[in-house]
Amino acid sequence: MQKIIISGFGGQGVLSLGKFISYSAIEQNLNTSWLPSYGPEMRGGTANCSVIYSAEDIAAPVIDHPDILIAFNEPSLDKFEGSVKAGGVIITNSDIVHKKTTRKDVKFYQVPVDTLAAAINKRGANVYMLGVLLPIFNGDISEEAAIHAVEHVFESKPKVIPSNIECLKAGIEYMKKFVK
């Protein structure tokens, strides 16, 4: 089981990264829940979502202490870093977030995901981030399941599938360097 909070500006693909994780979890026959923030704050402000996957039934869809925080902007890091579980993971999009976490008891990764993805697909940052997450998920979700999820989400836009799968694989390769 992983409890994940993804947060950033509206329009950064925060909610869709969460959906990619949930779709991948379904492909892996896991239970999952995806809970977005909603309302006026979505329009240009900050957006976040809470995603859980688990082999068991998921009780609460709300997350008080995430295992993983993915912060796409600085306000998100400020807001959520204190809640991350000791021994948990914080990932920032270091193209936008320049500061580091103040937490000493978590694993901290700075990933320039916009730059890395842009070399392949300018709009592929969130799928790249999905790739980054897979090694952290430690085999819970296979590369194959994630590929199926990408294919499923882009069903109506088959042209963009290959470049997104490339982003996914690049993300996995990138993170493998840091996570064994």
Partner: peptide, 10 residues
Amino acid sequence: DGMLGQMMEP
């Protein structure tokens, strides 16, 4: 409630 209306699950 808003949570159940907005959330996604299989």
